[in-house]
Amino acid sequence: MNNSSIERTITYAVLILAAAFALYPMLVILFTAIQPESIGASGVDFGNFATAWDRGNFGTYLKTSVIVTVSVVILSTLLACLAGYAFGTMRFRGSSVLFYLLLLGLMVPSEAIVIPLYFGFQELDLLNSYPALIFPQVAQSLAFGTFWMRAYFRSSQAEVVEAARLDGAGHFRIFWSILVPMGRPAIITMMVLVFMWTWNEFLLPLVMVPTEESMRTAPLGLATFQGQYTSGTALLAAGAVLVALPVIVFYIFAQRHFIRGMVEGSVKG
């Protein structure tokens, strides 16, 4: 066996071990979710998902999470693309200062601002509402999104942009007709990350939705369900699968562009 074969074997072995390490907890949860809830029963019980759905009110929680997450992803993507284009292709006074000021959003933890946000939205009478869940998360995602898209727009092909300008294209046409289609992998990568972060957010909904049960998101609803069924491990596992399923489905559909965007970002970085 030559050196290349040995290296290939070691690489595959490491990848298989890493995949097993990552998949083992998920398989355990999935296996637990289909176990019969009754003590001493055997076989599988897919009815645990329907039971958890009904008892845990996951239909309402998932609806709220979908509305909040989709709104955050759309607004964050739009604003991040516009800001990234401005910082990546335009030169104006104070651009560097504004950009690094925006990057402070990456350094401030959400725990440090959630209490001021609570009192601010309380003064505006917006607690237990969609704006209280959407706007703070858009602001949190905007710093990373701008940083990510600025890196893409700065590394985009300058000759293509110059050729478009010579043809009379303005900023909007260059942005919308040329750079956005070319940057689809980078944009989808950002959307997947923002989707996962927003869907899994727990602290902000916990603080911003203190009383209205119908406004609870899926992770917050799962925590409530856990408090009600601490001994029902199968139902808890079924609820966890229901909460995680939308993220998995979204990633499966976007994985090709997500991986391409991550690879291109690492190469350009």
Rank of each mutant, 00 (worst) to 15 (best):
L117W: 11
L30Y: 03
L104Y: 08
N48K: 00
S95R: 15
L101V: 15
I67K: 02
F92Y: 12
E111Y: 04
Y61F: 15
T51K: 15
V114G: 06
C81T: 14
V97A: 14
I39R: 13
Q35E: 09
V28Y: 06
N57W: 07
E111T: 15
S42R: 14
A19V: 09
W53F: 15
G88N: 08
S42F: 11
L75G: 04
T32H: 06
S65C: 10
M90V: 11
L78R: 05
P109G: 08
E37P: 05
A86R: 05
D45S: 10
V68A: 02
S42L: 14
F121L: 05
A112H: 09
T89K: 14
L62N: 08
L78E: 03
G120K: 08
S65D: 05
F87G: 05
F21E: 06
A41K: 14
F92A: 09
L79H: 02
F119A: 01
V97Q: 11
D125N: 10
S42A: 07
S76I: 00
Q35L: 02
P109K: 12
F46Y: 14
L82A: 13
V72S: 08
S110G: 10
A86H: 04
R55P: 07
L102C: 03
R93K: 14
D54R: 13
L102F: 03
L78K: 00
G88R: 04
L75N: 03
I115D: 05
R93I: 15
P116L: 10
T64M: 10
V97K: 10
Y61Q: 06
T89Q: 12
I115T: 12
V44E: 06
F121P: 01
M26D: 07
I34L: 07
R91H: 15
V68D: 04
M26R: 00
G56K: 03
V97Y: 12
M26E: 03
L23Q: 06
A20W: 09
V114L: 08
S65R: 02
V73D: 03
A50H: 10
L102T: 06
A18E: 08
G88S: 11
M90G: 02
A52I: 07
T77E: 09
E111A: 13
R91L: 12
A80Q: 03
G40T: 09
V44L: 12
P36V: 09
V66N: 00
A86N: 00
G47H: 02
